[in-house]
């Protein structure tokens, strides 16, 4: 697989040019936002960071402070679908360069990715140590009132491997797999057990 190197913030051209199936190595600034931050932003709450062009990451890390410096020990993706009710509005209001998480997202997000020229990056769920190794530093942590896992972490990452699974043309690998597995399931169920 040929791998594209991309750096966040992503320019509109880069975001729009990402294609489902592209393997990427992501560097630069990534901002975590999960359930509470999404609910807050979708309700019109101000973002402490200008998200324009940045990668918004569905993640609640394990982090501790060592001598006043935050160290991220584990930081894999959480299930993105939970942000489906909010994501389209977040994309339209804040114009991030990409959304990153696991498991893919639904039709509302797919439409927003298309109209706003954004993409969805997929990471391997549970590969928390592997991913944490690519986190170079914690720049800042905001919205800590939501609790440490739900706070907004601004991270610097280097060569984080991801797969584009939804793109600005409306393609979705998740939709494709769901459709094909549904067809197989219908066939399988024709033969009863035992």
């Amino acid at each position: 697989m040929a791998v594209k190197k991309i750096t966040s913030p992503l320019s509109p051209d880069v975001s729009r040019g990402l294609r489902t199936g592209d393997a990427v190595l992501l560097s630069g600034r990534v901002v975590t936002a999960r359930d509470q931050v999404h609910k807050y932003l979708a309700a019109g709450g101000a973002s402490p960071v200008d998200l324009k062009g940045l990668v918004v990451y569905h993640c609640g890390p394990v982090a501790i402070q060592e001598n006043g410096i935050w160290v991220v020990r584990a930081a894999g993706p959480t299930t993105s679908m939970r942000e489906e009710p909010y994501e389209a509005k977040v994309i339209r209001d804040h114009r991030p360069g990409a959304i990153m998480g696991k498991g893919g997202m639904g039709d509302a997000t797919r439409d927003a990715l298309r109209t706003e020229g954004c993409a969805y990056l997929h990471l391997t769920g549970g590969a928390a140590s592997y991913i944490a190794r690519t986190i170079v530093s914690v720049e800042e942590v905001y919205l800590t009132g939501f609790g440490q896992p739900e706070a907004m972490w601004v991270l610097q990452v280097e060569d984080l491997p991801a797969l584009v699974t939804m793109d600005s043309r409306g393609d979705s690998l998740h939709r494709k797999i769901e459709n094909s597995s549904w067809k197989v399931l219908k066939q399988i169920l024709k033969n009863p057990f035992p």
């Binding site: 993640c59 609640g60 890390p61 394990v62 020990r73 584990a74 930081a75 894999g76 959480t78 391997t124 769920g125 549970g126 590969a127 928390a128 140590s129 592997y130 991913i131 944490a132 190794r133 896992p149 491997p161």
Partner: peptide, 21 residues
């Protein structure tokens, strides 16, 4: 491959396997 590498890393360095503990 990434899953197996990450699990080995967690075991050897005594780190959480997943950030969702």
């Amino acid at each position: 491959r990434i899953i197996l590498e990450s699990a080995a890393l967690s075991r050897n360095s005594v780190l959480p396997i997943c950030q969702d503990t």
